[in-house]
């Protein structure tokens, strides 16, 4: 960006009252600076009172959205049966399109208690605590997530901070973040017709 690029081209002409006001202000400014105006030596604002920081509470883990009623509880259909471990095309659950490494359902879902997930030692995990399942294979992500650096914190940086479980952003069946439609691009200068607005947009284009 070059300094000269911000000069307005042929600025608007000023009406007489405005011009006089400017002259008046210039005169005032001279007097003002002569009387000790100019650069402020203070480092802070006079009116600011001291505001101590409150101690930080622990971050709050938000519950994941509940599993769709249409399928939950799973035991409505799966009660008392032990799953068929064979990797195959299912007649049910068509919407579950696995695209997660080369995992199969039973790597995560419990074979005998279908309402539950399980860890590698077969210990059960509630659906609502599914992040513990992810920990099993993505342990490296967990410290970042706990620190609020992977995933997202909202609310208060100083105060109640909320964070989210993995399945809020990652569908466990195909975990890659889903693409989104972007919001509209900024308006380029050439498409703004008012002359003053054009300058504004050009200026904004020049600065990036």
């Amino acid at each position: 960006m070059h300094p000269h690029s911000i000069e307005p081209r042929g600025g608007p002409s000023l009406s007489p009252p405005v011009r006089w006001t400017i002259v008046g202000i210039a005169v005032l400014a001279v007097g003002f600076f002569a009387l000790g105006g100019g650069p402020l030596k203070q480092s802070t604002v006079r009116a600011y009172p001291s505001r101590p920081l409150a101690p930080e509470p622990e971050p709050v883990l938000l519950a994941p959205p509940p599993v769709d009623d249409e399928f939950f509880p799973c035991e409505d259909c799966h009660e008392g049966e032990s799953a068929d471990p064979e990797v195959r095309e299912l007649d049910e659950h068509e919407h579950v399109k696995l695209k997660h490494g080369d995992l199969w359902c039973l790597d995560c879902h419990d074979r005998d208690q279908r309402d539950l997930l399980h860890l590698s030692d077969d210990s059960p995990v509630e659906m609502s605590e599914s992040w513990r399942l992810c920990t099993r294979c993505h342990a490296k992500r967990i410290p970042d997530w706990r620190a609020g650096v992977h995933g997202k914190r909202t609310g208060y940086w100083s105060g109640r901070k909320e964070y989210r479980t993995c399945v809020v952003c990652h569908d466990p069946h195909s975990p890659l973040f889903k693409p989104l439609a972007p919001k509209p691009p900024p308006i380029p200068a050439s498409q703004i017709h008012s002359p003053t607005a054009t300058r504004s947009a050009e200026m904004n284009d020049a600065g990036h």
Partner: peptide, 23 residues
């Protein structure tokens, strides 16, 4: 917002959690 302890609007809006703010 931030002087009241809250996160910035952009942090709140980011769907992928790419934006981080704090002390």
């Amino acid at each position: 917002r931030t002087r009241e302890g809250r996160y910035t609007a952009c942090v709140e809006a980011c769907p992928v959690g790419a934006r981080k703010f704090g002390n």
